[in-house]
Design a protein around this nucleic acid. Structure first.
Length: 372
RNA sequence: GCGGUUAUAGUCAAGUGGUUAAGACACAGGAUUGUGACUCCUGCAUGCGUGGGUUCAAAUCCCACUAGCCGCC
């Protein structure tokens, strides 16, 4: 087995799980937020900077790296860890999400998905086998099965057929996976916003016995209440003795809800993306550094933060960098936002230890502005 | 002093008689959720140097003035 999951304790107040995942490239304390580095880099960040903010595991993307620079090159370089100089754990997404996000540039069949490259328009046929070939070449610690992520809204019949195909693709992924001893392959539960379909998907995938499971198909534009409802009933369908990963979540409210429902891992491009557009996540809510009110605000982004950006720079200066489109602005905000979610993860783990996650959630929400 | 030329938003600028005066940048907000993202969306001139005039109708035509620019004494 490539990874080991240890359930350390459950929060008596909330039911959230504190755990530890051991991978070939180190241990991960859960619940944990995973920064996204789609193209073998967390945009604007060096591995040293990621280490400094205590990043435990990164995400990267199979489909993007397959297009450029090509998995053969990365294999030749000695694998993704060596190629990008990151020696910690890496999780690679399968390309399944691109089935959703590139919906105008692809065609889905039972065999696989024909994509039109967003790089040069060329056609590429992606299959579960292809995704495994690429992920095996990359050498990630955790791989994902190739799935179809249906859009929202989608009618039930479509979602049912989609999930059943995702199960068949999961089986094919597992069969094609060459390195199960050094790379763990996670299954992805689909089923849209339908409880019975989520149950069907979970059941079918659990029969295939993966070392970890993810919830896919959420955070695709559905209302927040619906997303949380689906999350609440889907998580308990997942095995207790294996890691549980909620894909695509990165706002504090979703992170709390995920942890409380028993999720161990989550990832999102949001903190790095909004950083590049001038927004910071702070303990008292999001702030847009472009706003005129920060022109002469010489305080740090977040008084409670101890990241490099907050220790050394003011809102006024960072606003200036953002307004001038200076690279350092994006870098400082990225460091800060990732640190914020990593610190939030740590605080959640600490609260679980002390059986007070619901109390911590209320404190956080009041300050952040979720509760008036 | 004389001749020519120009004057439209904070900036650049389209428009040369006919509905709510293009567009870009800047400015002010907003969005962003397994990254097609230095991206996207919204707002921003009751007014076209000033004052008169012609006309049903003027940023557009005419006159004067003011300012800038280019020549010539």
């Amino acid at each position: 087995m490539a990874i080991k999951y240890e359930l350390i304790k459950e929060c008596k107040q909330s039911g959230a799980r504190l755990g530890k995942i051991t991978t070939p490239h180190g241990e991960i304390e859960t619940p944990i937020f995973m920064p996204v580095g789609t193209k073998a880099t967390v945009k604007a960040m060096t591995p040293e900077e990621l280490k400094e903010i205590e990043t435990q595991i990164l995400l990267s993307n199979t489909f993007h790296l397959y297009l450029r620079p090509g998995h053969e090159l990365i294999e030749k370089a000695g694998g993704l860890h060596k190629f990008m100089n990151w020696d910690g754990p890496i999780l690679t997404d399968s390309g399944g999400f691109q089935v959703f996000s590139l919906d105008k540039l692809r065609k889905i069949t039972e065999e696989g998905v024909e994509f039109r490259s967003f790089v040069d328009g060329s056609k590429h046929f992606f299959t579960p086998e292809k995704s495994m070939e690429v992920q095996n070449a990359l050498g990630s610690d955790i791989m994902m099965t190739f799935d179809e992520c249906p859009p929202y809204p989608a009618d039930k019949e479509y979602v049912r057929k989609s999930l059943e195909m995702t199960t068949r693709w999961a089986k094919r992924s597992k069969d094609a996976h060459k390195n199960p001893d050094t790379q763990a392959l996670f299954g992805i539960i689909q089923g849209g916003m339908f409880r019975d379909l989520r149950e069907q998907s979970a059941k079918e995938l659990i029969e295939l016995d993966f070392p970890g499971y993810a919830i896919g198909g959420l955070s695709v534009g559905e209302p927040k209440d619906l997303m949380i409802e689906v999350l609440k009933y889907t998580t308990p369908m997942m095995p207790k003795d294996k890691p549980r990963y909620l894909m695509g979540v990165g706002t504090p409210d979703y992170i709390f809800e995920a942890a409380i429902s028993g999720i161990d891992m989550f990832d999102c491009v949001l903190p790095t993306r909004i950083a590049r557009n001038g927004t910071a996540m702070t303990s008292s809510g999001r702030i847009n550094l472009k706003n005129a009110k920060f022109f002469d605000d010489f305080t740090p982004l977040d008084e409670e933060c101890d990241c490099y950006a907050c220790r050394n720079y003011t809102k006024s200066y960072i606003r200036h960098l953002v307004k001038e489109n200076e690279i350092l602005g994006a870098r400082l905000l990225t460091i800060h936002n990732l640190n914020f979610l990593l610190k939030l993860s740590e605080n959640i783990r600490e609260a679980i230890k002390n059986d007070r996650l619901l109390d911590y959630k209320e404190e956080f929400y009041k300050k952040y502005g979720y509760i008036k």
